[in-house]
Amino acid sequence: MMRLPSWLSQHLAALRALLVFTVLLGLAYPLAMVAIAKLPGLNDNAAGSLVNGVDGKQVGSRIIGQAFTDADGDPVPKYFQSRPSAAGDGYDPMSTAASNLGPESIEDTLPVPGAVDEEGNPDEGTQSLLTQVCTRSKAVGELEGVDGTRPYCTDDGVGAVLRVYHRDGLTGPVTRAVSVNQACPATPFAATYEGVTVECGKPGEDYSQGVLTPIRGDAPDDPAVPADAVTASASGLDPHISIGYAKLQAPRVARERATDVATITRLIEEHTTGRALGFMGEPGVNVLDLNIALDLQFPARG
């Protein structure tokens, strides 16, 4: 038999090794783990921790968050609400995602009325992370009947951000100030900035020559609406909310369920997962579990 050149025999050895590894590590190992996962005690987890609703039908997974909103995307008031989600249209396990917007994402692109994109859809602009946070905070505040204001937010629920023009570019006296996230004819959150009248933002106008200046305002450092209620999670499927956000929602849910806040608070405590071993992670309230328990114990009126 002819001896193969060494480079070829080396690649053939590599191919044989890869095929062996594929059979062993790519088929035998994961399939064996699937088999082990069928054992009692593991099978429920391995199948996805599916849970049933009051009527016995599967309504989701205990460890995957879901939206408790109606067809229009508005919160269903009898349910505790989950966090904002960037997964698809919200809590879509087929397109999991975080927002990926950075800490200085503070300037919106205002939609230009009447403009359309390449596909003919109306221009919706893009919201900065700051405006998303402000909008959510305002909405949650209104839903729960608390103060929804936050630092760096306007009263109408967008980021309080100015483009400030100086006489000499970056320095010198202020010559012009524009509240870039408040589309005209909105009333700017501040009437004047360093003696100059603040303008509202004109969609489509280029303000990039101004210096981007977020304005803190006088909202309290510790807003009534908790942090997790105004931020999108990492997974887009976060099954938990903070204890603070759950307690904020308790009065509304109690009202909808015709029971008292103390009872609802006790139910929240029952569905709170603490830190493992007392120090791992943060406590969280499992929203789906809690809402199923509500449906069982306090069927909503109507």
Binding site: R83, A98, S99, N100, L101, G102, P103, E104, S105, I106, L129, L130, V133, C134, R150, P151, Y152, C153, G159, P214, R216, D221, D222, P223, P226, A227, D228, V230, T231, A232, S233, A234, S235, D238, P239, H240, I241, S242, T273, G281, E282, G284
Partner: peptide
Amino acid sequence: TVPQAVGAAMEGKDVRF
């Protein structure tokens, strides 16, 4: 700016972690 507005660097993080 955004973490200050939120009150925590909570964007892109899950509650349990």
